[in-house]
């Protein structure tokens, strides 16, 4: 019997409230979700259903009001900020809708930034890896361009390269193609899934785009804070 595919991410009975007082809203109502390495997941649903909130909780950018989150088998939901930050740096790569590049830095610097913080590679190895990643997203000739000197599609490709910099086990992408035209959307999605598959990473993406969702391994629709 073959070994089971390792579980990269698991959450159980997640609850999250946003806002205060009378404006307090129960956004996530006991969500349970699992993601295996090498699989691409799409979370879809109408605006305000809690997709992005779930993604930020899974990415340890936010803390749940209830429930459990485990990254590579290690429970993180009750850990302190330092542990969650370390886990983000080592295991999670983010791709946001609005690129979120640091625009004063070159494409190369942006990709090297997570590596510099993790400090696993030598400076020469970091530069080599950053060049390789930018080459794999088709930006090998624009490594020294500042963020401001890149188009939207190029910025998003740099963001994908940056998300892969520390070889994370999980890639979380919040509407990664939401701000791109059709051609660039397809390019970024193909890139993300191909690189993730190649390296055995779990990819969880939130999207409104049905074409993108349909090309994922698994689609999880959400409504009113729960999977349906």
């Amino acid at each position: 019997m073959a070994d089971p595919v390792p579980l990269a991410l698991r959450c159980a009975n997640l609850h999250r409230y946003l806002g205060q007082g009378e404006g307090r809203v129960h956004v996530l109502k006991g969500v349970t979700f699992e993601a295996q390495r090498g699989q691409v997941y799409a979370i879809v649903g109408p605006s305000g259903c809690g997709k992005s909130t779930l993604l930020y909780l899974l990415g340890l950018l936010d803390q749940p009001d209830g429930g459990e989150i485990a990254i590579n088998g290690q429970t993180m939901s009750n850990s302190d900020d330092a542990a969650r930050t370390a886990a983000r740096g080592a295991h999670i790569g983010f791709v946001f809708q609005f690129h979120f590049l640091m625009l004063e830095f070159s494409a190369l610097d942006n990709v090297m930034m997570p590596m510099r913080k993790l400090g696993k590679l030598s400076p020469a190895a970091m530069i080599e890896r950053a060049h390789a990643l930018l080459g794999s997203v088709g930006l090998g000739d624009k490594t020294h361009r500042l963020g401001t000197q890149l188009s939207g599609g190029e910025q998003q490709r740099v963001a994908v390269a940056r998300a892969l910099a520390n070889e994370p086990t999980i890639i979380l992408a919040d509407e990664p193609t939401g701000n791109l035209d059709v051609k660039n959307s397809a390019m970024v999605f193909d890139l993300l899934t191909r690189l993730a598959k190649d390296h055995g990473q779990a990819v969880v993406l939130v999207t409104h785009n049905p074409d993108i969702a349909n090309r994922c391994d698994l689609v999880r629709p959400m409504r009113d804070g729960v999977f349906v």
Binding site: G59, L61, D81, A82, T85, A86, R88, G89, A90, I92, F94, F100, L101, M102, M113, P114, K117, L118, R162, N166
Partner: peptide
């Protein structure tokens, strides 16, 4: 603030 969020998402700590 946006850059702070990016850095924090990449593993930069509060003290960084």
């Amino acid at each position: 603030t946006k850059d702070i969020a990016i850095l924090r998402s990449m593993g930069y700590e509060r003290r960084d």
